[in-house]
Structures are given as C-alpha cells and as structure tokens.
Design a protein around this nucleic acid. Structure first.
Length: 422
RNA sequence: GUGAGCGUAGCUCAGCCCGGUUAGAGCACUUGGCUGUGGCCCAAGCGGUCGGGGGUUCAAAUCCCCUCGCUCACCCCA
C-alpha cells in the first residue's frame, strides 16, 4: 500500500473542522486590521530564496526542496512566505507609495527530520506590512499576532523581543563578538564547538542559538547587541517598547533572540507557548523587520515588517490548552428506506431536499432498518425519515425525532414545509 | 546528518525476556436475540504476509543479523 511521504500528514475530517475554525477566526481578524489576502505560487525560481533568506542559512544550505524542471531551470518549493510575497509585490506593482498590508496562507516545504510540531510540508499564515518604518507599525503587527492567538483561546503567551539592528550596527557588533569569542577569557573557558567556530566567521550572532553546554557558558558574558545599536535603531526600539506599553502588551527582552533568516533588521520577535511539549518547538509565531530585503530583490528602498505563524503548532497548542471549538448547529436528517422500490423513491426525494438546502444522509445499499437507524445514531443526526412499502403506498413518510424517540407521519407533499419548521 | 524507542486485526495493545497445539483481548464493524425502529445488554461472525528479507533450530511473533518504515529527541526552525 502506498503511504504518505515522510514529514507530511493528512487532515482527516474530524481535524479539518479545527482547521476551518482557525481559518475563519483568523481571516476575520486579519481583515479587521486592514490586511488583504495574497496568494502566490508554491514554486519559485531558486534564486529568490537563496538571495533573500541567505546563502549560509540552514534553510538554504540543507532544507530546500530544489529540482530542475524539464528545461533545466532550478525550481524550489517555497520554504517560507515572505520572499514570494515581496516578489509578487514588486512584480504586481502594488501602489508603491502607500502602506501595503498583505496576508497569506499556505503550505511551506523544508527538508528536515520531522518531529512533534515540525513537518516537511507545513502550513503557515503570515502577514507583511510593506512601506513604513515607523515603530508604531511594529507594535501594531505584534498586537495583531497576539490578538490572533488570544482570540483562539490561547493564554499565557510569551512575547520575546529584540532588536538586531541595521547593517551598520551589526558590522560593529560582529567585530565586538569576534573580539570577545577570541579573547583570552573565553579561550580559558574552553573551546567553542565546531559549528560555532564556523558561525563565528559567518554570523557570530547564531552562536546564541547553540545548546552546547560549553558554548552556553561563554554566551552568558558575551556583549549584547543592545550596546552596539546605532542611535536611530536605539530610538526605534525605544519607540516600539513605548507603543507596546500603550497597548498593554507585556514583553520579555531577549538580547539573544536571533532569527534564522538573514534578511531581518531591527525588530525581531517570537511568541512562544511554554506549555508546549518540546521546549525547542514552542514558537507559535515569529517575525520581524526586513528593511533591506525589497531593495536587495531589485525594488526601491522600502522598509517592511511581517511575521509567520505555524498552523500545526497552533493546533497543537489548542489541544494542550483544551480549547473548545464551537460547532455550528444545523438540522441534519438521515433518510432510511426499506426495499428497492422505496429506495428509488427516496433517492429522488433526497436529491430534491439537498437542492433545497437540507443536510441529508442516506444509506447507499439496502440494509436492515436496524442497521440504518444505528448509522443515523452514529452520525448524531437530529431526525430520521423512514420510507417503507407501507408509507410509500399511502404517500406518507415517517419523521422520527432521534432525541426523544417520537415519530409522526407526514404526507410526502408536505415534507419540505415540515422539515423547514424543524 | 546524529542518537534513542517502537512496528502483532481497521484502532489501542497483550504475547517476546524463558522458542512448542488452530496468535489473543478491548474498541470498531456485520448479523441475530427484538420478522419495520437507534443508544444499553447478551451472543455469534468478519477481520492477521506477527513491517520485509535472511540465519539458527525438529520447530520462530518469540533468538541472531540485515533492511525498510514510523515516532521522539539533537542540529535548526513555524
């Protein structure tokens, strides 16, 4: 038997209800904050991702689904959403001067070893606010992210906040970090792990992500980015904090927070849910500013900020938090028919009822009354219609209320009117 | 890429350590008890290449080797 590919999953009907619920809640709120949906292709030219995410990042070096098409072009299944949205923004010439607020929703692909809360094909919903650098926008975007999760019923969310500065701050900071990690105080504490020695050359901030005990110890005393921020970045960060306070959104400053993508500048944030099983997979949403990306992709200098949330993790968090998913109540009917003649008549009636807007279940094979009622019971329908030879000859149908086990006859000609009253 | 755990009925698992009749249970499903009335109860039935291959043995779900798959964790990320 053919089985699903590793790291993929099927959303079965009982779970699809949960997905639909989140989709409904989210789309309303996103529109309320002024965002409009954008849909982009799942496949893109490979260079879009290598240029935006960064040549040396884990995503680009080992996690992308890349293949050559029939004409030998390098194609990649999107590993994240921002690059495609920016590409579409530039290609679609969306009003370049005004602030553009977009949201997207879709599957992303990363070739990773799957584990709890992490898949090779996974679903992200994200937003991008393009065209403004004012810190109030950062605060609004963060508020939106919090609002989305809180509206689902998730509590005790933790907002981790940092500023990773602009290119100027980072140049200064990288030098400081290199000096520190090469200094005698660090060397006496023991060597960095091999991965971190490479990181020291390419992107020293990434050392903060290391879980090696020895590296962790050296990190404690390392200089923070805050001390290296330029005056503009410092001011922007202070303003962001001020606006978050205005909105009563608590946050935790985390100077070690580094995002795994190269394009981030200034604001970086992550919303974690501590009750999540695995401590390393507890980020429900993450994002930040990317003020240089649009220019790097060939557009005009345009500041922007966005975030992405992982749907699988949100659903997982909802399970853990035991969130109640409201179910829309609708009148459902199971149509029981007995014998071939009655089945043919029922077959016509059922089709007519469905076209009129009723929710009607029915058996497809001639089974016993008992087994059909049992199925109706399993489906939890409120009512059952029973049509046998006796009813058919008298042009009536039995309407059974499954809740209190009462039933009455209804002339076939009045059926639709009677059902409408239920 | 690295490490650990697990693969037995549709599902959850027992049996394996200590090899030995036809490989079990619960749930689910079908039928009947109740000839045209669901849920509860009772009974019967259906359902298995014991993940796959090889080896040891008179004999393998059970012991050994290889392999595939899944899960969890590391790296990293949503």
């Amino acid at each position: 038997m053919i089985k699903r590919l590793r790291g993929t999953y099927d959303v079965l009907p009982q779970d699809a209800i949960k997905w639909q619920y989140v989709e409904d809640v989210f789309s309303v709120i996103l529109e309320r904050y002024g965002y409009r949906e954008i849909r982009t292709p799942v496949i893109e030219e490979t260079s879009l991702f290598t240029r935006s995410i960064g040549e040396t990042t884990d995503i680009v070096t080992k996690e992308m689904y890349t293949f050559l098409d029939q004409k030998g072009r390098s194609i990649t299944l999107r590993p994240e959403g921002t690059a495609s949205v920016v590409r579409a923004f530039l290609e679609g010439s969306i009003s370049p001067d005004a602030l553009t607020k977009l949201y997207y929703w879709g599957d992303m692909f990363r070739y990773d070893r799957p584990q709890k809360g992490r898949y090779r094909e996974f679903c992200q919903v994200g937003v991008e606010a393009i065209g403004s650098a004012i810190p109030a926008l950062d605060a609004e975007v963060i508020s939106l992210a919090m609002c989305l999760l809180e509206t689902l019923g998730l509590k005790d969310l933790k907002l981790n906040l940092n500023s990773v500065g602009c290119v100027d701050c980072r140049r200064v900071y990288y030098e400081k970090l290199k000096d520190y990690f090469n200094s005698s105080t660090v060397v006496t504490m023991g060597k960095l792990c091999p991965t971190c020695q490479k990181r020291l050359e390419k992107n020293p901030m990434r050392i903060f992500d290391c879980k090696e005990e020895n590296c962790q110890r050296t990190i404690e005393k390392a200089p923070t980015i805050a001390e290296s921020l330029c005056s503009n970045c410092t001011l922007a960060f202070e303003n962001l904090k001020k606006y978050l306070s205005l909105l009563d959104i608590p946050f935790v400053l985390n100077t070690r927070l580094v995002r795994g993508l190269d394009y981030y500048t200034r604001t970086a944030f992550e919303i974690t849910y501590e009750k999540m099983g695995s401590p390393q997979q507890n980020a429900l949403a993450a994002g930040g500013r990317y003020d240089n990306l649009i220019q790097e992709l060939g557009g005009p200098p345009t500041p922007a900020i966005g975030f992405a949330m992982g749907m699988e993790r949100i659903l997982l968090a909802m399970e853990i938090a035991k969130v109640n998913i409201p179910t829309g109540k609708k009148v459902e009917i199971y149509f029981v028919s007995l014998g071939e003649v009655a089945f043919q008549e029922a077959f016509k009636i059922i089709d007519r009822l469905r076209r009129k807007g009723f929710y009607v279940y029915a058996t497809t094979s001639g089974r016993s009354l008992k087994s059909q009622l049992r199925e109706a019971d399993r489906l939890c329908v409120g009512y059952t219609l029973i049509l046998g030879g006796d009813e058919l000859s008298r042009r009536v149908v039995m309407l059974r209320d499954m809740e209190n086990s009462t039933q009455r006859e209804i002339p076939l000609k009045d059926l639709e009117d009677e059902l409408a009253k239920l």
